[in-house]
Amino acid sequence: MNLISSIVTLSLIYATPIIITALGGLYSERSGIVNIALEGIMVIGAFVAATFTPLNEAALGGWTPWIAILLGALAGGLYSLIHAFVSIDLQANQVISGTALNMLAIGISVYFCQIFFNQQRTQTFSRGFVKTNVPLFSKIPIIGDLFFKRMYYTFYLALLLVIVTAFILRKTRFGLRLRASGEHPSAVDSLGVSVRKMRYTGVLISGLLAGLSGGIMVLTQATQFTAGSIHGVGFISLAALIFGRWNAWGVLGAGVFFGFSQIFAIFSKDIPILAKVPAEIFHALPYILTIIAILLFSRRSAGPKAAGELYDVSKR
């Protein structure tokens, strides 16, 4: 029971950044822009949060990580605007733009680590987020053990974001227009709604969320930022988006699944049969599972129709 509850808890903790980033990807892709730069945006968010934390934690105490992830989100949002500008206004290939931004993120963040800290990583912080037993809820038998003990509050933030996203897409004016922009942009323009604005908004939200998620990831899973801090979680989030069929609840499920696959390596040591398998195999597991998941879902993929396509108003 102890093992199971810690597996569940840890899965959810590792799922948190995947869920939030995938939600970001959801906004972007639903608006019609493929955002492969999620990984890089997370890097930027993580770098900003991890730079802010050690420099301010003495003064700000318990509030530090929250302010740090907020700054991470803002930085991510700003950074994503490059992608928006390049792919919406300059009609660049969205995948190429995203690839460039992924590389640039590593370059810039480690470059400034060198400038600020004279090393290829940030200074270590004494503590990021703290695991908590949620009052009242943790007392519930079984459920309390699984979901409310030794948990980061950021997981509940991810849950909240799932609910809010599902609601926005289904019920609101903004959601309808966003989805329409990703399906049939010229129809949206012909009704006097600016596709450009919708897409900018979609990409910006994706940047805010991925930046936030990068901050959360580094402050819950590490003690400093390095070039390897995000190690492909942005791409796994992209896979979670596909796996979750561009739907907020689907993203939640897929996120938990991939979170679980991430912690396999940690627990394999404690399980006798698995202990003999080299750690590298478990490290590779989430990526292999992602490929398998994509293959399984390829037949029924239901992405936004116009996502990734150039949309040139003048060529109507």
Binding site: K171, T172, R173, F174, L176, R177, A180, A187, V188, L191, G192, V193
Partner: peptide, 11 residues
């Protein structure tokens, strides 16, 4: 209704 939805933020 797209672009001219009845209701406020909620349709």
């Amino acid at each position: 209704i797209l672009g001219d939805e009845p209701g406020g933020i909620l349709i």
